[in-house]
Design a protein around this nucleic acid. Structure first.
Lengths: 354, 354
DNA sequence: TACCAATGATTAATCGTTTAATCATTGGTG
DNA sequence: CACCAATGATTAAACGATTAATCATTGGTA
């Protein structure tokens, strides 16, 4: 239980056994030529005095710090915990530490954050880019987690497929009029999700997209989204690109006295922490962050450890499917709902985008 | 914009100017005796070739890595983003990097996480301990962010005062019967919050505590908390120790057709990201994480830079007040509500605990 | 003139590890 | 017997910065 940095080093072990430090190093790393018995003795004494190699010393010599940087668009993002946890786990399993850097939303700070990491000699960087930004060459290996449709993306969830799964689920429950709720139209992730949803509209289905930032720019921040009126218009399915927006929709509907899921269904994305504890429980899509992180880290480590000069990191599997988590906010459409006057079949289902 | 580690070092600058590396080091750090003009020249060339000191080299020599560790009870905690962001900002302002370590909830992993950090030679650690655990001496300076009532706490929000503010606010609105909703009774933070609430009950006020984990152990996870029945019992104020529980309460009440805030008021804690976007907006308490992080980092850095051997880090100001954010889930009690039969004044307000 | 202090710079050791180059010993082979 | 290869270990040079100790020069003072 003694965490204390024992101050022990190679030469100490060497002195104890009357051998050279180089031999100790070789023995422990299994690299040079050391007799089996000596290796055993060295291992034993190392364990005995609680030797822990100095990563700093090693870093200076090898030029590798064993540390990866993690840059997030905005740490305040509620998805951040999932990502950070998964990355930290994958990284430390691979023997790397994780240095965080917050870019606080702004592009300038993202640049700043990256250079802070590089100055600290990280061996590589995992970056979840700010929407709309493109990662330029930064002189060290970079794995990008964004969306499959982003150029330069290393690995990410299959947001498009997730969108498809949502609409398929709802269409199967009889829904025909969908309000797709996004936040910002510049986000690759959000566009993929919405694109996927649109691509699976059922026969005679109709979808409309509402971008919250655009809405708020017009009507002010934090107000109502006017969803009750949409229900009156015949919309029965409200599909948000994130659980945050889904929650906003759900509470707004509840407050307006519209029963969920009886009168309207609501879905989100990401399975954020609260989604399972609210009433009714939110139907949402979960990404397999553990797998994504694993792929990202593996790809990054491969590039690092093969000294590949180029900074483009590619993974064998660039996208990981999302899984639908069905809870209580989605249900078969009530016989009465949705069959309002204007049930025109004028909107053809959109074609597949890929 | 060139992030590339230029490979430049002290000797390179030295060679360029025909001086010794030591002089360059002295000039840049302002430590030895170097003539003003030479300092200028050295600074100029350093800037010109884009010299960035190798933190690794420096670390090896000085024994200080310039990196702090951040240990969180469970990264998945929705409060984590706020904490991490604030700590990262404060640390990087002080010239330190932040290495994260997730303890994934378990005590064993918390120990593990700490030793991983120590092995990486962090100069100090900021730890938000798992509830119920006590941080033992770990051989490097540690700042603990927990609650003022925790022994060994360095700095934290004044949860007790936050609790007081909640109840004062609600009492001012006429509420008398409070249901205090906690999650786990072993948490210092939660106990402080609840203690503060109890300490400010108005004349004739009544408070009851409900621990969710206990409730779920009995009735199963994820079910209803039976809040509608509590409303029938005359409770009008539902005060959760976290926005997560408040959200759970709010949606459960809404779903049961109980109007918030007309028929019941709900409050949370922490001002989590969704609290401002839900309908109605959640009244909650915000902690000033920026200040808390600043104090924690300053205290930690002071210990580190004075080489104080002892690992007990004390701050000048151990607790930071929380601020009440009033939104729409709290309102003056309806004339009809709460005046049910059993309005006995039998419960005396609890005394101050400190 | 001789001595001293202040100034400005250099030397060299050090932090702990890795690793190429070297050396010594041994047994085997032509 | 001489030569070679294999084996097991050592030496010494890095990596890049910091810093105590040292040295050289200058100007001032007794």
């Amino acid at each position: 239980m003694a965490f204390v940095r024992s101050g022990s080093n190679l030469s100490q072990i060497a002195a104890l056994l009357g051998v050279s430090a180089a031999t100790v190093s070789n023995a422990l790393s299994g690299k040079g030529r050391v007799s089996a018995e000596l290796v055993d003795k060295i291992r034993a004494t190392a364990a005995e005095i609680g030797y822990v190699p100095s990563l700093t010393g090693r870093a200076l010599r090898t030029g590798r710090t064993g540390v990866l940087g993690l840059v997030l668009p905005d740490i305040a993002n509620p998805l951040f915990p999932q990502i950070a946890q998964a990355i930290e786990f994958a990284a430390s399993s691979a023997g790397y530490g994780v240095l965080i850097a917050d870019s606080r939303g702004s592009v300038a700070m993202q640049t700043d954050a990256i250079s802070r990491l590089v100055e600290r000699d990280v061996d590589g960087i995992v970056i979840v880019p700010r929407r709309g930004t493109r990662i330029t060459d930064i002189g060290c290996p970079v794995a990008v987690i964004d969306s499959p449709s982003t150029p330069g993306n290393t690995v990410s969830a299959d947001h498009w497929q997730g969108g498809q799964a949502v609409v398929e689920h709802l269409a199967g429950l009889g829904h025909r009029r969908f309000l797709l709720i996004g936040n910002n139209a510049a986000s690759n992730v959000q566009n993929d999700r919405i694109g996927g949803m649109k691509s699976r509209l059922p026969q005679g289905g109709h979808a409309e997209v509402m971008w919250i930032e655009r809405h708020e720019a017009q009507f002010g921040k934090g107000g109502l989204l006017g969803l009750a009126e949409r229900v009156a218009d015949g919309f029965t399915a409200f599909c948000a690109v994130s659980d945050l927006q889904a929650l906003r929709a759900l509470t707004e509907l509840q407050r307006a006295g519209i029963a969920v899921p009886e009168a309207a269904s609501v879905t989100g994305f990401d399975d954020l922490v609260w989604s399972s504890v609210i009433t009714p429980g939110l139907t949402t899509l979960r990404m397999d962050m553990a797998t994504i992180a694993d792929i990202a880290i593996k790809a990054l480590v491969r590039v690092i450890e093969t000294d590949a000069a180029g900074t483009a990191v590619a993974a064998d599997r660039p996208s990981v499917p999302m899984t639908l988590v069905i809870r209580q906010t989605t249900a078969r459409m009530a016989a009465s709902a949705g069959t309002v006057s204007n049930s025109e079949p004028e909107t053809p289902p959109e074609g597949e985008r890929r």
